[in-house]
Write a protein that binds this DNA or RNA. Structure first.
Lengths: 136, 136
DNA sequence: CGGTATCCGTACTGATACTG
DNA sequence: CAGTATCAGTACGGATACCG
């Protein structure tokens, strides 16, 4: 269980899996990946690409998200260094969220993945249909 | 509620969000994205990039996954057209799983995302550390 | 406005046992 | 070997109420 002292500078996920680590439970990447691929993480990252926005802006834009999950997901992303939070000390409170450069990089990749699925949806749905028709 | 009859040929996730759809709940993409980004979906897609493998091979390689979730996740990915399943009619049963061309494309993108996180982990951890030191 | 704390239902997860 | 069925624990997610 002393994976932490392994000498190699790892690298790819496939590498880790080949070592039998599976991208080990202990690995912080698992945590980050979880935040990013969480139900609202994906949507929030994409939403933030529009630029700096307030808490309520995001709540409206993402639509369907509860305050709890919005706050929590933003905190995860902030802790991971993907989101910057600026609270203006006024009443009523004014808080702005934006992507950090690191977050912008990530958001692009996430959006690319989501867009790929959008784009390939016809093929995906066709696969489903063909299976139902007896091809499975 | 009649989003389905909207004329435009949609496109990007950001587009959908801008329309207030958020990548609507009704949208099948949500379902697919859920399968792909699920706890085991990511790992399985990457694992399958090594080539055709049997059920038990995958179980061993992914390590930590239960038979139930392995079967279920494989079924999701198969239904979405990302995974091909071939059952040889012998005893004991011999079933092989592999990526379809579509699945291979997807797996590449997923792995790229995971690898990016692996690669940027130092920056991410640094972000966490700096926040704990009072920068937050 | 921008959160936090609490309660609660659900849905995902895993261990076990069983079947073909 | 490759699943399926069942059951129980957990963790996620949402609604509500309350605080700064």
């Amino acid at each position: 269980m002393n994976d932490r002292i392994s000498p190699e500078p790892p690298a790819t996920l496939a590498e880790l899996m080949r070592r039998g680590n599976v991208f080990a439970e202990q690995c912080p990447s698992r945590e980050v990946l979880k935040h990013v691929t969480s139900r609202w993480g994906v949507l929030l990252l994409v939403a933030l690409r529009d630029g700096t926005q307030r808490f309520s802006d995001l709540r409206r834009k993402v639509g369907g998200i509860s305050e709890k999950m919005l706050a929590q997901t933003l905190q995860w992303l902030e802790a991971d260094g993907f989101v910057a939070r600026i609270a203006h000390p006024v009443v009523p409170p004014h808080v702005e969220y934006s992507l950090t450069p690191l977050g912008e990089e990530l958001a692009q990749k996430v959006e690319a993945l989501a867009d790929w699925i959008e784009f390939k949806l016809p093929e995906i749905m066709a696969a489903r249909a063909s299976r139902e028709n007896g091809a499975g």
